[in-house]
Design a binder for these strands. Sequence first.
DNA 1: CCGCATCCGGGGCGATACTG
DNA 2: CAGTATCGCCCCGGATGCGG
Lengths: 220, 220
Amino acid sequence: VRSYHQYCGLAKALDLVGDRWALLIVRELLLAGPSRYSDLQRGLPRIATNLLGDRLEALISSGVVARTEAPPPVAATLYTLTPWGEQLKPILLALGKWAGPVMRRGRARGDRFLSHWLALPLEASLRDRYPDRRPITIALRMGDRPLLVEAGAGEVRVRQGAVAAPDAVIEGTPEAVFALLLGRIDLATARERDLKFVGDPSILRRVQPRLPAAAKAMAR
Amino acid sequence: VRSYHQYCGLAKALDLVGDRWALLIVRELLLAGPSRYSDLQRGLPRIATNLLGDRLEALISSGVVARTEAPPPVAATLYTLTPWGEQLKPILLALGKWAGPVMRRGRARGDRFLSHWLALPLEASLRDRYPDRRPITIALRMGDRPLLVEAGAGEVRVRQGAVAAPDAVIEGTPEAVFALLLGRIDLATARERDLKFVGDPSILRRVQPRLPAAAKAMAR
DNA sequence: CCGCATCCGGGGCGATACTG
DNA sequence: CAGTATCGCCCCGGATGCGG
């Protein structure tokens, strides 16, 4: 709300999205698409309702977010990112990746976790390493709502939802599921951390960005 | 200083560098390298000295910034980015680029400007389009301190300083100099905006990312 | 319920003064 | 030059209220 009054691109960007909660609101809109006020509240634990209102108004007046009215059947006001706002996506991903060292320390006491928060970094990290094989689906259970990892034709998508017969099911703590999918630990290590895996373990190689660190000890 | 308490990469990143002034301090350290306390103050107009102290301490304790002691001749404490902190560079560049539409509106009344703030976005935008020709130097005068654009061997560097015999000298408002170098306006238009150019105008093509918009009217 | 608006206590922020 | 100390103020956070 308060400007730096500097003619500098970074300072101007921070004038717009540097206020507390602003970028997290953008995150929610990126992850969930058009959202209602209460959807945003659910995705932003501990945000004060007046702040959500203030930030939305500021983001709208600066052209990052747009307010749209939903069609009559379910009349509701929806908030969406403008095309300009969507261009923040790679920046949010880069910031999340930059904080990797902190995330790897694990969940601090008092940290809240919503499973869809991992959708963006996962989608950015995973690869479809065998584009010619048939599409596969991996179901993730690690928080409030289930996620689906879908790989096929060289693309990987991570979205909220469930499916009748996934090719594999992974259930465990966010840290363990994330580390396993990224190949930072192997399945045996993950199982020691109470992770449950159902399906053919070789399916992990389909999406892992790197091989499970077998020679992990050597690197240390 | 106050955490979001969310197990999410973006939230963790904002816990570290989301506080007011934090990213601007990182900007100064990126632009100027190891800096003294008062150097930082000069580069951050209107920052309160207690905030600078608080932020530096927080950034140090989180491993983004390091405090180093300068060698005896000029005994002084210097602040530097850690390797981890330097990895914020592409993110700061992306944020600055994202704010392009706001910058293009020009300098708002009350906006302060320091010339070195443009070094990063310029270096990120310019190209050496004729790597085989001899290196060239363009001097920029548009604010408090002169900048140098050096192109050669396919690389472009923008740094603070002056040189005896530059191949060209550009002097004018930040907006005009920036727009000319980026090829958004041609030299005639720039001169209408009180920009002074000394040297061979063809040197501009050496570094411009795109050709001066001759058919600018058509695009509107 | 959903979508806010209002009120209020506490602390982050900003400006100034002060000290080694 | 390099910070620390002090003091308002306003932003932030939490709770409550209230119309649609």
